[in-house]
Amino acid sequence: MTRSGRSVNCILPPHILRALLENDDREIRRTALATLASTSRLRGERAVRPIVAVAAPAGGRRTISDCHHSKQLAQATVQRGEDDPAVTDSSVNAAFEGLGTTRDFYWQVLQRNSIDGKGMRLNGYVHYGQAFNNAFWDSREMVFGDGDGRVFSDFTGALDVIAHELTHGVTEHTAGLEYHVQPGALNESVSDVFGSVVKQWKLGQTAAEADWLIGADIFTPGVDADALRSMKAPGTAYDTPLLGGKDPQPDRMSNFVQLPDTDEDDNGGVHINSGIPNKAFYLVATGIGGNSWEAPGVIWYEALKASSPDTDFQAFADTTFAKAGQLYGTGSPEQQAVFGAWQGVEIKISGVSPMSLRISATSNGNGVAPESLPSRVDDLASQIKALTKEVNGLRKARV
């Protein structure tokens, strides 16, 4: 089954919205139902709505519009353009800044000219619907709900959410990962990766300093949840009846969650199983050390560009390993970190053993392979034996 990566990509997974439908609070149930209905309708529209290229040599110029709580984007009014000063509406300003920070990251760090690589304009829409509990990218624009004020706050307030959604556009214009099962979970993971990386870049945080949480700022203070997802520890972002119990994300392949490939089941659990490659990136970033947007981010971005619509976890792992070798050297610390990270989530790099990797590292001056130590000891012993023999010969000659 194939599905284009060009679809409505929402930050909130359906299992959380369905959990809210079971809440005792009538208003929470109502807003969750309205959000689910709107999301389903939007996905249906995308199935027949043509993709229109909005690329232009504009360097990602921004326009933020106000929907005035309507769901008709055509009726929205422009509030702020690229060269305009800040306005009184904080949602407009937050969306403007979030789009700009993400655009600047892709240009300054990865030399990518906006979402499509060709200067695509960045259009954002705020105040979408009434108490809409989501934010989404629909292949053309970024749309933000205000949240219901009970569970979720204004979605423009989370930079990682904005970068996550815009990265769906980057994925769409590069690998075009199909939005189901493993390619879909990888699609979601790549967005989480760069959502977190952009936030770290903005804050100037190292991989060790970062919280590695996705969506920590979209919950209201009264909600007992850290975030939507944790890349550092998938499965620990929340544990509350309000959100359906414990965070269901796995952190390794033996815990991969098998779900039907249907809309109701999140297209095979794309928001759930993304925890596996998320953990792999976290392990790479902390294994290499320093800033996640340097070697780790570059490796992931180059691997994304080299991927195809049906790339699964194994293929992506192999590609990141190959790219790490091409960029930083065979057996380099970067490549070793990638190898170890995927092993950490129970994915083995195809055709590569730990022994062969360490030998490669030694031959390239990147370390000493433990397996080579016995032969080196033997060599040293032979040299000592020969030296002893020579010394004894000299002593006899003196006598």
Rank of each mutant, 00 (worst) to 15 (best):
Q249M: 15
E141S: 15
D25V: 04
R140L: 08
G100V: 05
A337R: 03
Q205L: 15
G268I: 04
D146K: 12
A19E: 09
F96M: 13
P85D: 04
I349G: 04
P50C: 03
R49H: 12
P309N: 08
D217R: 15
D379F: 10
N255Y: 13
T35C: 01
I115F: 05
A285P: 10
G98T: 05
A225W: 00
A175N: 10
N133L: 05
D148T: 07
E82V: 02
S254P: 10
G100W: 14
F313C: 00
A306S: 11
D265K: 10
V391M: 12
S70W: 01
E346G: 07
L283K: 12
P309Y: 02
G147A: 05
G331W: 01
A233D: 14
T35Y: 06
E165M: 00
Q314H: 10
R358W: 00
L380C: 06
N255W: 10
Q258K: 10
T362H: 11
L243G: 06
G290D: 10
T388P: 03
Y128D: 00
A175D: 05
S307Y: 12
L394T: 11
N133Y: 01
G124T: 02
T167I: 02
V151R: 05
H271W: 12
S90L: 06
D104R: 13
Q383S: 14
A280H: 09
T362M: 14
F144W: 09
R29F: 03
S90M: 06
E209K: 15
R3Y: 14
A315K: 14
